[in-house]
Structures are given as structure tokens and as C-alpha cells.
């Protein structure tokens, strides 16, 4: 992230150390992940030790320290989704796109993530593709949801 952009984000939060979480979210919104070099500059400029930033960034699964793909597919693995076959969905996506859970495809098109419950258990199993929630997913339905992505990948 260029310096001016980062400063805009920092100034938006008054360079307040207690706004660290919001700052990290803003950076991730821009960059799709949290670049190490950016975090170093945040540490220097708002006076929060790097160890603390790293601690926060690794605590929340919403943050990623590795570059993520253009599209982000999140499969809910909460108890309800899990017993309704979420692991099979992860397997299916993994097979179709050659990607492991928590990783990104080689062409940086898709990141596959798993989370432990998004709080919509009645809709389980649940797949979230780029922020859009798809409930009661079956293998066929999943194929339909991922169709455009597959096309894009060619």
C-alpha cells in the first residue's frame, strides 16, 4: 500500500492505538490481506508494538496474513453445517479448483476458507461466495453457485 493511502486510513482513525482493529480491517479491505510491510508502518506510526499487531491479526480468522484470491469462498463448518455435510462441500471445491482449505489457487483466483459458524444454522450447510450467502447447499447447488467462477478460471 502506498504511503499516502496508509496515512489516510490512519488519520481516519486519529492514529488512535485503540482503533487498531478498525485500521487493520481498512487495510485488509484495500489489500485483500494484511501485508507485513504495512503492519510494520502501522506499528511505527501509532506506537503499537509489532508483537501486539501480529497477535491480533492471527487471532481473528477474518484477517489473513497471506495474499488472498480475487474471489473468496467461505464454507461454514459450524456444528449444524458440519453434520449436514459441509466437509463434503470443502472437498468438492478443493477437487474442482485444486485448492486446500485456508489456501489460494495458484492463479490467485480463489481462496477457500472455513469458519466455525456464521450464525445462520437453519440455512446449513452454508457457503459464502464474495459476501453473498448461499443456504441449504447441495453438491449440485454448489456447482451452480461456483459456475461463473469456473468459467472465469477457464
Amino acid at each position: 500500500m502506498d504511503d499516502a493511502k496508509l496515512n489516510v486510513i490512519l488519520d481516519r482513525h486519529d492514529r488512535d492505538p485503540s482503533a487498531l482493529l478498525a485500521i487493520l480491517m481498512d487495510i485488509q479491505k484495500e489489500e485483500n490481506y494484511l501485508p507485513r510491510e504495512d503492519l510494520g508502518r502501522v506499528s511505527e506510526r501509532i506506537g503499537v508494538p509489532m508483537s501486539r499487531i501480529y497477535s491480533l491479526a492471527t487471532f481473528f480468522s477474518a484477517f489473513s496474513l497471506k495474499p488472498r484470491g480475487k474471489h473468496i469462498c467461505t464454507v461454514c463448518m459450524g456444528t449444524a453445517c458440519h453434520v449436514r455435510g459441509a466437509p463434503k462441500l470443502v472437498e468438492q471445491i478443493g477437487r474442482d479448483f485444486d485448492v486446500k482449505a485456508g489456501e489460494t489457487t495458484a492463479d490467485m483466483k480463489l481462496t477457500l476458507e472455513t469458519v466455525n459458524c456464521v450464525g445462520a444454522c437453519a440455512l446449513g450447510p452454508l457457503v459464502i461466495l464474495d459476501g453473498e450467502y448461499h443456504g441449504n447447499i447441495t453438491p449440485t447447488k454448489l456447482e451452480r453457485v461456483m459456475k461463473n467462477l469456473k468459467k472465469e478460471q477457464g
Binding site: P49, M50, S51, R52, Y54, S55, T58, F59
Partner: peptide, 9 residues
């Protein structure tokens, strides 16, 4: 020194 911290969860 704040050199280390818990990571992950």
C-alpha cells in the same frame, strides 16, 4: 520491549 505475544487461538 514488547518483543513477543500470543499468536493464533
Amino acid at each position: 520491549a514488547h518483543a513477543i505475544a500470543f499468536a493464533g487461538r
